[in-house]
Deep mutational scan, measured.
Amino acid sequence: MFKRLMMVALLVIAPLSAATAADQTNPYKLMDEAAQKTFDRLKNEQPQIRANPDYLRTIVDQELLPYVQVKYAGALVLGQYYKSATPAQREAYFAAFREYLKQAYGQALAMYHGQTYQIAPEQPLGDKTIVPIRVTIIDPNGRPPVRLDFQWRKNSQTGNWQAYDMIAEGVSMITTKQNEWGTLLRTKGIDGLTAQLKSISQQKITLEEKK
């Protein structure tokens, strides 16, 4: 169930391209415009997507990853294993993690069937560096609404905000991946996880038929 919630949630996290980005210092504006741009692209490019579902990787690479804190999220997933990894191991892992996100997020976007969304009203940021933004996803086919909290983090150097995690039903996506990959990290280390991520990233994206 959580895996499905995570995939549905990713439908609204794909941010804007650099040329049309919203105010990078306001995570609420980023979330709002990102959702609108993403849904528009999914709707307008269905012919290309249906002809070649792996085209979704391109959308992810162009529109999402430049505005997601990939390395920060990847380091959180590694936890204690990050500090013990060599620079070469980290570089290989982050490259594999990025390719994994292209496949995983692309597969999530393949679930698009006309969903709509509501974003919580903007709250004062103050001096906060981590801000959760509640998004409610509404399914046109009558499924119950899904309420999610996207975690946005302020870059201490640039002042810009980027998304790095999502919490559904009190469970963090980062925590879920830590639990899912924990045994592999304990037995085969970061190299074993890197190899698995490379394998997963090679899987073809498949479209979910409308139910």
Results as ranks from 00 to 15, higher is better:
1 M>T: 01
2 F>A: 01
2 F>E: 00
4 R>L: 15
4 R>G: 03
4 R>K: 15
5 L>C: 05
5 L>P: 01
6 M>K: 02
6 M>Q: 01
6 M>P: 00
6 M>E: 00
7 M>T: 04
8 V>H: 01
8 V>C: 15
8 V>Y: 15
9 A>N: 01
9 A>R: 01
9 A>L: 15
11 L>C: 04
11 L>V: 05
12 V>Y: 10
12 V>A: 06
15 P>R: 05
16 L>T: 07
16 L>G: 08
16 L>W: 13
16 L>C: 11
17 S>N: 11
18 A>C: 15
19 A>N: 01
19 A>P: 04
21 A>N: 13
21 A>I: 05
21 A>Q: 13
22 A>W: 09
22 A>D: 11
23 D>C: 08
23 D>K: 10
24 Q>V: 08
24 Q>H: 12
25 T>V: 10
25 T>R: 07
25 T>M: 10
25 T>Y: 10
27 P>V: 12
28 Y>R: 06
28 Y>E: 06
29 K>E: 15
29 K>R: 10
29 K>G: 12
32 D>H: 12
32 D>N: 07
32 D>K: 06
32 D>C: 08
32 D>I: 10
33 E>D: 08
34 A>H: 02
34 A>N: 05
35 A>H: 03
35 A>C: 12
35 A>N: 11
36 Q>T: 15
37 K>M: 09
38 T>S: 10
38 T>D: 03
38 T>K: 05
39 F>V: 02
39 F>G: 02
39 F>E: 01
39 F>L: 03
39 F>H: 01
41 R>C: 09
41 R>F: 02
42 L>N: 06
43 K>M: 07
44 N>I: 09
45 E>N: 14
45 E>K: 07
45 E>S: 13
46 Q>G: 05
47 P>C: 08
48 Q>L: 11
49 I>R: 06
50 R>N: 08
50 R>P: 08
52 N>H: 12
53 P>E: 13
53 P>D: 15
54 D>P: 08
55 Y>M: 12
55 Y>P: 04
56 L>A: 07
57 R>Q: 14
57 R>K: 11
58 T>Y: 08
59 I>V: 12
59 I>M: 05
60 V>F: 07
60 V>Y: 03
60 V>P: 02
61 D>G: 12
61 D>E: 13
62 Q>T: 08
64 L>A: 01
65 L>V: 11
66 P>I: 03
67 Y>T: 07
67 Y>E: 05
67 Y>R: 04
67 Y>P: 01
68 V>A: 03
68 V>I: 14
68 V>C: 11
69 Q>D: 02
69 Q>M: 03
69 Q>N: 14
70 V>T: 13
71 K>Q: 04
72 Y>C: 04
73 A>V: 02
73 A>S: 08
73 A>P: 05
74 G>V: 01
75 A>V: 02
75 A>L: 01
75 A>S: 08
76 L>Q: 02
76 L>M: 05
77 V>K: 00
77 V>D: 04
77 V>H: 15
78 L>P: 02
79 G>D: 02
80 Q>K: 09
81 Y>F: 07
81 Y>D: 11
81 Y>E: 05
82 Y>T: 02
82 Y>Q: 01
82 Y>I: 02
83 K>T: 08
83 K>E: 04
83 K>L: 04
84 S>F: 10
84 S>H: 13
85 A>V: 07
87 P>W: 05
87 P>I: 07
88 A>Q: 15
89 Q>V: 06
89 Q>T: 09
89 Q>I: 06
89 Q>H: 10
90 R>G: 04
90 R>E: 03
91 E>W: 05
91 E>V: 10
91 E>G: 10
91 E>D: 15
93 Y>A: 03
93 Y>Q: 02
94 F>V: 09
95 A>N: 12
95 A>F: 08
96 A>C: 13
96 A>V: 13
97 F>R: 00
97 F>A: 05
97 F>C: 06
98 R>E: 10
100 Y>T: 13
100 Y>W: 14
100 Y>P: 00
100 Y>L: 11
103 Q>P: 15
104 A>D: 03
104 A>T: 05
105 Y>V: 01
105 Y>R: 00
105 Y>D: 07
105 Y>G: 00
105 Y>S: 01
106 G>F: 03
106 G>A: 15
106 G>Y: 03
106 G>C: 12
107 Q>A: 13
108 A>Q: 11
108 A>M: 06
108 A>V: 03
109 L>S: 00
110 A>I: 12
112 Y>N: 06
112 Y>K: 02
112 Y>M: 04
112 Y>H: 04
112 Y>D: 03
113 H>R: 07
113 H>T: 07
113 H>L: 02
113 H>M: 07
114 G>Q: 11
115 Q>L: 02
115 Q>M: 05
115 Q>F: 02
115 Q>W: 02
116 T>E: 14
116 T>N: 14
116 T>L: 15
117 Y>F: 03
117 Y>C: 03
119 I>K: 05
120 A>K: 12
121 P>Y: 09
121 P>I: 14
122 E>T: 11
122 E>G: 06
123 Q>Y: 13
123 Q>V: 12
123 Q>K: 14
123 Q>L: 11
124 P>Y: 12
124 P>E: 13
124 P>D: 12
125 L>P: 10
125 L>E: 14
125 L>H: 10
126 G>P: 07
127 D>C: 10
127 D>K: 11
128 K>Q: 07
128 K>P: 12
129 T>R: 09
129 T>I: 10
130 I>T: 02
130 I>A: 00
131 V>P: 09
131 V>Y: 11
131 V>N: 13
131 V>R: 10
133 I>Q: 01
133 I>T: 06
133 I>W: 08
133 I>K: 09
133 I>A: 00
134 R>V: 00
134 R>I: 04
135 V>P: 03
136 T>N: 12
136 T>W: 11
136 T>A: 00
137 I>L: 13
137 I>Y: 13
137 I>K: 08
137 I>T: 04
137 I>P: 08
138 I>Y: 14
138 I>G: 11
140 P>K: 13
141 N>I: 10
141 N>M: 11
141 N>T: 09
143 R>N: 05
143 R>E: 09
143 R>Q: 05
143 R>F: 05
144 P>N: 05
144 P>G: 10
144 P>L: 09
145 P>Q: 07
146 V>W: 10
147 R>D: 00
147 R>P: 01
147 R>V: 02
149 D>R: 04
149 D>K: 03
150 F>S: 00
150 F>T: 05
150 F>Q: 04
150 F>W: 05
151 Q>I: 04
152 W>Y: 04
152 W>K: 03
154 K>W: 05
154 K>A: 02
154 K>C: 10
154 K>Q: 05
155 N>C: 01
155 N>F: 01
156 S>V: 01
156 S>N: 03
156 S>H: 03
157 Q>A: 03
157 Q>S: 10
158 T>C: 03
159 G>M: 13
159 G>A: 00
160 N>E: 09
160 N>K: 10
161 W>E: 09
161 W>P: 03
162 Q>F: 00
163 A>K: 15
163 A>G: 15
163 A>M: 15
164 Y>R: 02
164 Y>M: 04
164 Y>L: 04
164 Y>P: 03
165 D>Q: 05
165 D>P: 00
166 M>D: 01
167 I>R: 09
167 I>A: 00
167 I>Y: 08
168 A>I: 00
169 E>I: 03
169 E>L: 02
169 E>K: 04
169 E>H: 02
170 G>T: 02
170 G>K: 03
171 V>P: 00
171 V>N: 05
173 M>C: 00
173 M>R: 01
173 M>S: 00
173 M>K: 11
175 T>L: 09
175 T>N: 04
176 T>V: 02
177 K>M: 13
179 N>S: 04
179 N>T: 12
179 N>A: 00
179 N>G: 05
181 W>E: 14
181 W>H: 15
182 G>P: 15
182 G>S: 15
182 G>F: 12
183 T>Y: 06
183 T>W: 11
183 T>R: 09
184 L>E: 07
184 L>Q: 09
185 L>R: 14
187 T>Y: 13
187 T>E: 07
187 T>W: 11
188 K>A: 00
188 K>L: 07
188 K>H: 06
189 G>T: 12
190 I>Y: 10
192 G>M: 14
192 G>V: 06
192 G>P: 15
193 L>G: 06
193 L>S: 03
193 L>D: 01
194 T>M: 07
195 A>M: 14
196 Q>L: 15
196 Q>I: 06
197 L>D: 02
197 L>T: 12
198 K>D: 08
198 K>C: 08
198 K>S: 12
199 S>K: 13
200 I>A: 02
200 I>L: 09
201 S>R: 10
202 Q>K: 10
202 Q>W: 14
202 Q>P: 11
202 Q>E: 08
203 Q>K: 14
203 Q>F: 13
203 Q>G: 14
204 K>P: 14
204 K>V: 08
204 K>I: 11
205 I>T: 09
205 I>N: 15
205 I>F: 12
205 I>D: 06
206 T>N: 14
206 T>S: 11
207 L>V: 13
207 L>W: 15
208 E>I: 10
209 E>A: 14
210 K>G: 12
210 K>W: 13
210 K>P: 14
210 K>L: 09
210 K>R: 10
